[in-house]
């Protein structure tokens, strides 16, 4: 990747070596983060601390949700302050489907009867489709605006979802909806904490791989150009709007899938998952980790949940310290934890 692609180019002296070592460093950090995330719950499992296995699942799922958001914010330059809408919708898909499966009533009776299901595969599919459709509508409207207006309009849509869930008594309203039995997968026991963690981990790895692959493709090249200079993209003959919209939809689908798993992790879904605090939390994770860095959301999620757990155990005002850390990152380490660990991102 860092080799000159054409023989006509004389390699600039000194360039290949630092580029290669920089690459190695980034690769090491990425593998290190994944290994940490994988090994910590394995160790906790062996020591019998189920709590920490579930904590690792939580890190994994907020990281995955943030990977989705990072595609919009970091790679697409679309600062969505409403990704809780997809996170929560995913959660409600899992909750509502399980609720109807539990008492054998249809989710929808008309025009076609759709039964509830406690199968994760069905729930994931439904979450992906519904979050994609919701993002298509919200994105199609929001992407007509830019800057602060985009931030506000995405927030407004998410708040609409929040208040809607709050005021819909069928599914618990503001009290939320419990999932009495964790939804199931064929052949594996999802109630086992470690098994469930591994499912989440696979989801995270897949979403990372997907993001990486997409950003290296032609679509990724167009999205990058839409972010850096949309006039240039239009002048080349590619309309930026559909490119952004598709990226926004993919981003929402990843976040929505994480939300469906998150509801299953907690055995509970409530409007909190749709609230602007959730959107803000995901944004903070992306910024902490490094905006537009592939592994930024993972680094950010580890830092965020660790602070929440360690400092939250000491004081209920732990968010004060989170604020200080965020302030530090924004002022002094603009490229986030990944920028600090792995060096600045270089474009080819």
């Amino acid at each position: 990747m860092n080799k000159p692609d054409t023989p006509t180019l004389a390699p600039q002296p000194g360039l290949p070596t630092p580029a290669a070592s920089w690459h190695d460093r980034k690769g090491l950090v990425q593998i290190g983060l994944l290994a940490l995330l994988l090994l910590a719950p394995l160790a906790a499992h062996l020591l019998g601390h189920v709590y920490y296995v579930n904590l690792a699942s939580r890190v994994t799922l907020v990281a995955m949700a943030a990977v989705g958001l990072n595609l919009a914010i970091g790679y697409g330059g679309m600062v969505s302050f409403g990704h809780a809408a997809y996170f929560g919708l995913g959660g409600y898909v899992a909750g509502i489907s399980a609720y109807h499966a539990f008492d054998f009533t249809p989710v929808i009776a008309w025009p076609i009867a759709i039964p509830g299901s406690d199968s994760m595969l069905a729930i994931w599919l439904a979450a992906l489709v519904l979050c994609g459709l919701l993002a298509l509508v919200i994105g199609a409207i929001s992407l007509r605006t830019t800057g602060v207006y985009f931030i506000m309009i995405t927030l407004a849509f998410a708040q609409m979802m929040y208040y809607f869930a709050n005021s819909w008594p069928t599914y618990g309203g503001e009290d939320g909806l419990p999932i009495y039995l964790r939804n199931s997968l064929p052949w594996v026991d999802t109630n086992d904490a470690l098994t469930f963690f591994l499912i989440c981990f696979a989801g995270l790895v897949l979403s990372l791989a997907l993001t990486s692959r997409i950003m290296k493709s032609r679509f990724g090249a167009a999205l990058t150009m839409a972010r850096l200079n949309d006039t240039r993209l239009a002048t080349a003959g590619i309309a930026p709007y559909p490119v952004r919209l598709v990226a926004f939809v993919i981003s929402a689908m990843i976040t929505g899938l994480a939300g469906a798993l998150y509801a299953d992790l907690n055995g509970f879904v409530s409007p909190t998952m749709l609230s602007w605090h959730m959107s803000g939390e995901l944004m903070v994770i992306v910024i902490l980790g490094g905006v537009g860095r592939l592994y930024g959301p993972l680094a950010g999620a580890i830092l965020f949940v660790m602070m929440e757990t360690l400092l939250g155990g000491l004081t209920e005002y732990w968010k004060l310290f989170l604020g200080l850390v965020l302030l530090f990152v924004v002022l002094f380490a603009k490229h986030g934890v990944m920028g600090w660990l792995a060096g600045r991102e270089r474009h080819e």
Binding site: K216, S217, F219, A221, L233, I238, E348
Partner: peptide, 21 residues
């Protein structure tokens, strides 16, 4: 390259990496 890509008209391809295209 983005101009070449536009000329070829295939910007909604998500899989093949561009750097060795």
């Amino acid at each position: 390259m983005i101009a070449v890509q536009a000329l070829q008209g295939h910007s909604f391809r998500f899989w093949k990496p561009v750097h060795r295209d």
